[in-house]
Design a protein around this nucleic acid. Structure first.
Length: 279
DNA sequence: AGTGAGGCCTGAAAGC
DNA sequence: TGCTTTCAGGCCTCAC
């Protein structure tokens, strides 16, 4: 499920709920993820106290006081559960469970496209998985100019490049469509055809869309401890995503003529856009 | 080098 | 109703 806003929301929730918690026991019930959980994972994180939770791209990084950091990715279907020990009942696909002094943290991931591993805290940034991630959308250097530069000589559809985590990290399939809608750019446009102005517009649209989603996700935080222990994800108010045939919010065109929001496949992924508003 | 297809997994929803 | 097919918010590897 999670794209940047969801990961940010979950990271914030974890930070709030688990900071200062000591890991009494970490149990790995299934280690077959995108990359296997290291054999010594449990013993390496056990007795560590959680100093802080950070987000790098779509990764959650949990720094422990024993100079180890947990690297966590939720993949497509990953969920984080946080609940008291008394109310915890291990459910299907709860593959990794932490018993801490502040309660249970469980990693549930039906499809196991996610991953959990660890490394020395000082080596997180140079870690194989982390080092290839591109600029965070909220990084100071993120700008139209940066995108314009990165898009030079790229004939790839702009929508496909937005999903390339080595250029900008954190954008997933939903927000790629949404950001292009906000900046009024057709997803099929070759990246190199975008003007500097359009890149500026896209850069700010990315930030706006993600920021809105984080704020909305944050507002659901108050009930993140639902009875089932899951945190719940922000139910997004999308403009175009999964709205095939429906009018887009800003469109004043004739729906019967335009056909409403169109769905196409780019780079193997569903892509949604308004053929009237986006050029 | 850059691109598209296929693969990893399971479950929900749609199609028959 | 029940079986089969398709699709899913991520990401990697492989063949061209």
């Amino acid at each position: 499920m999670p794209e940047l806003p969801e990961v940010e929301t979950i990271k914030n929730a974890l930070q709030k709920a688990a900071n200062g918690a000591k890991i009494l026991k970490a149990e790995v019930f299934c280690d077959r993820f995108r990359i296997p959980v290291p054999q010594d994972f449990s013993s390496q994180v056990q007795d560590g106290t959680i100093l802080c939770c950070k987000r790098i791209a779509k990764y959650i990084i949990i720094d422990l006081d024993n100079d180890k950091s947990i690297i966590w990715h939720l993949g497509m279907s990953g969920r984080v559960k946080f609940c008291s020990e008394a109310s915890f009942e291990r459910q299907k696909h709860d593959h990794i469970v932490f018993w801490t002094t502040k309660g249970i943290i469980a990693f549930n991931d039906a499809r196991r496209f996610g991953l959990m591993t660890y490394c020395p805290t000082s080596e997180v940034k140079s870690h194989e998985l982390i080092k290839k991630t591109g600029l965070d959308p909220f990084d100071q250097q993120m700008s139209g100019k940066y995108l314009f530069h990165k898009f030079q000589n790229k004939s790839t559809p702009i929508k496909v490049l937005l999903l390339d985590q080595t250029i900008i990290c954190g954008i997933g399939n939903i927000y790629a469509s949404e950001a292009l809608y906000v900046s009024k750019i057709l997803p099929t446009r070759p990246a190199q055809s975008l003007s500097l102005d359009e890149c500026e517009s896209l850069s700010s649209a990315i930030k706006t869309v993600l920021d809105k989603a984080i704020k909305a996700g944050g507002s659901t935080l108050k009930d993140y401890r639902k009875p089932d222990g899951s945190m719940g994800y922000f139910q997004n108010a999308h403009c175009v995503y999964d709205k095939t045939g429906k009018p887009c919010p800003d469109c004043k065109c004739n729906l019967s003529k335009s056909g409403g929001i169109q769905k196409i496949v780019l780079g193997g992924r569903s892509t949604f856009y308004c053929p009237v508003l986006q050029k």
